[in-house]
C-alpha cells in the first residue's frame, strides 16, 4: 500500500470491534519504532484506537476521508 519501507499499514476496514484495536496493538508490538498507518471505517474504532495509542504514549494523527479514517501512529 505504501512505498515507504518504514511505514506499516493495518487495513482494518470492515472489521468489527474490537478487532481494529487488536490488530493495531499487534502491529505496534511487532514493528516497534516504525510509523503505523491504520485505515478504518468506523468512528467507534477510531475512538478506541486513538485512546489506546494515547494511553501507551504514542502520537496519533487522524485524517478523515469520505467514510474512512486514516490514523498515523508514531512514537
Amino acid at each position: 500500500m505504501s512505498g515507504d519501507k518504514d511505514k506499516k499499514t493495518v487495513d482494518a476496514r470492515g472489521k468489527s470491534c474490537p478487532e481494529p484495536v487488536v490488530l493495531t496493538r499487534k502491529a505496534l508490538e511487532s514493528f516497534k519504532d516504525q510509523e503505523i498507518e491504520v485505515i478504518i471505517d468506523s468512528p467507534v474504532a477510531k475512538e478506541n484506537i486513538t485512546r489506546m495509542a494515547k494511553n501507551q504514549g504514542y502520537k496519533i494523527d487522524v485524517e478523515e476521508k469520505d467514510e474512512e479514517f486514516c490514523l498515523k501512529i508514531t512514537k
Binding site: 506499516k8 499499514t9 487495513d11 490488530l23
Partner: peptide, 17 residues
C-alpha cells in the same frame, strides 16, 4: 492466523507490509 508468527504475510491479518 495472527500476524506475530508471520509478520510478512498480509492476507488474513489485514496488515500490509
Amino acid at each position: 492466523v495472527g500476524i506475530t508468527s508471520k509478520p510478512s504475510k498480509s492476507v488474513a491479518s489485514g496488515i500490509k507490509k
